[in-house]
Amino acid sequence: MKASWQRGWRPMKRLLYIIIGLVFLISVGCNKSISDDEKTAENYVKSQGYEITSRFGEVDKYTLEKSKLYGGTASIPYQQVWGVQEIKPDEYFGKEIVVYGFTVQNHPLQKRDKNAKNGVNLYVMLSDGEVIGGYSYPNADVVGAYSSIDGRTLEEVTGLSFQQWQENWKKKYGQDSVTQNVYTGQEKILLDYFNSKYPNSVVTDKCLVDVDNDGLEELLVALNTYSGINKTQEEEARKNGFDMRYVGIIFPKGENPTESLIVLGKIVEKGMRFEGSDLFVVETKENKTDQVKVKMNNQNGKEDYFTVKVSLNKDGTKNIQ
């Protein structure tokens, strides 16, 4: 005669098998759903004629809100991503966006970007199981902005200069941002302050950007003339066949117009000037402003860049170069 515990174990054993089976079926069902989305993304990539060499799986998932599109450095990647889409982000507010990543070959970006020689990282965006867009980036450890899914720049997608696009974007998505313009008319206040300090300087272009990643936007100005203390340095440069180019940075602090104003000078090839209205290129690294490049050119079309990098020391002082 079998022990009572053995007789009681049989129904418990059957129940345990049933539970394990149910868990397995639920798990398979969930994985199938995720796999279906990734397969949809993969099929889309292949339909564009690209050769997939590796898969990253799901690389991002978020609910799109207006607050993600403007305000502080955390919004910069979303601005870059949604700025190169054919669709408007407004249509997807409140919806979940899932992103799958692939490395591909045969992509147009490989013909126009030397950093893409090892392939292109392609990111496909889905909402409700359907592909809604995507973006691309060289498969390399480089700093820069995203391109559209077929390798076009923001300017090519929108038909606007970066400056024009930035102003439009700020008007449309920046009004509800907590960190937008610490006080009303921030740009005008900072520019007025600069002009009062250097009344004879000519501001070629200006750009609001959180260059030191402290949550407050600084005003950068590109100068074709400068009336500050480096006049002697400028004259010395010209004697030696060079020009001086200047970039001013005005750091805001609370409700005060400024914390400090710093003007950087750089000796450049004779004839280089800041010209046009799309001079500032903000580059990011790890979702933070890494540096700002200010484009210069001469009458022959040659280009060069004045690079501004700002980092904060532990004591709150700044390193600027």
Rank of each mutant, 00 (worst) to 15 (best):
V281N: 14
S196G: 12
T40P: 03
G8Q: 10
Y135T: 00
Q180I: 10
V247K: 06
Y226W: 14
E303Q: 09
E269C: 08
E303D: 13
E218M: 04
E283W: 12
G129P: 01
Y100V: 04
K302V: 14
K239W: 06
I18M: 01
D210V: 02
L22N: 01
K285D: 11
S27D: 06
F274G: 01
V268D: 09
V263E: 07
Y198S: 01
K206W: 09
N200L: 14
A116R: 00
F280W: 03
V104W: 12
K61L: 11
Y78E: 08
S227F: 12
I320K: 05
L191E: 15
I267R: 12
K309N: 12
I19T: 04
N115L: 07
G215P: 01
D128W: 06
I52Y: 07
Q110L: 08
Y173P: 04
V221R: 06
Y183L: 08
L69I: 07
M244V: 09
L69M: 08
F306L: 10
I34L: 08
A3R: 15
I229H: 13
S127Y: 00
E51C: 08
F102E: 02
K266D: 13
I76G: 03
K32N: 09
W82K: 04
F56G: 05
P11T: 10
V142E: 10
G94S: 09
N297E: 15
D243Q: 09
N300T: 04
D214R: 02
R112A: 11
D212R: 03
Q166Y: 15
D192K: 08
